[in-house]
Amino acid sequence: MDLRDILAANLRRLRNEKGLAQDDLAYEAEVSRSYLSQLEKGAFYASLKILEKLAKPLGVEPYELIVPPRKRR
């Protein structure tokens, strides 16, 4: 799995778990909604600074955004 795909899946999952719309997360993270949308599609790589900005409103540590999902047994 590509790192962009891992980030995209984790962003969508965490955002949905928090009940945030893309607009809300983008506003709280101080990024554009279109940029967030592209991250959630796996189209862009994110810098460490962006990971930090996104993690805060999601209530997670930045590294949690790029941790691959555990394989189901």
Rank of each mutant, 00 (worst) to 15 (best):
I66V: 15
Y63I: 15
F44L: 15
R72F: 06
Y45L: 13
R33T: 13
I6G: 05
E61R: 13
L54S: 00
L25H: 01
R13Y: 00
L54E: 00
F44M: 11
A9W: 00
S34T: 14
R72M: 13
F44A: 08
M1L: 13
R72P: 03
Y45C: 13
G42R: 04
Y27N: 11
K41R: 14
A46G: 11
E40F: 09
A43Y: 00
E61T: 09
S47Y: 00
R12K: 15
F44D: 06
L51F: 06
R72N: 10
V67P: 01
L3C: 06
S37K: 10
Y35M: 15
L7T: 06
R70W: 02
K56Y: 01
S32W: 01
R70I: 14
E64D: 10
R70T: 13
V31F: 00
I6A: 07
Y45P: 03
N16Y: 07
E17K: 11
I66F: 03
R72S: 09
L39C: 07
A26T: 05
E64G: 07
D5V: 08
M1R: 07
S47T: 08
Y45E: 12
R4F: 07
R12F: 03
A8H: 01
L3Y: 03
Y35C: 04
L39D: 06
S34E: 08
R70D: 14
P68C: 09
A55Y: 01
E28F: 04
R12A: 15
L3A: 13
V67L: 15
E40A: 10
D23V: 15
L36A: 08
I6R: 04
A46Y: 02
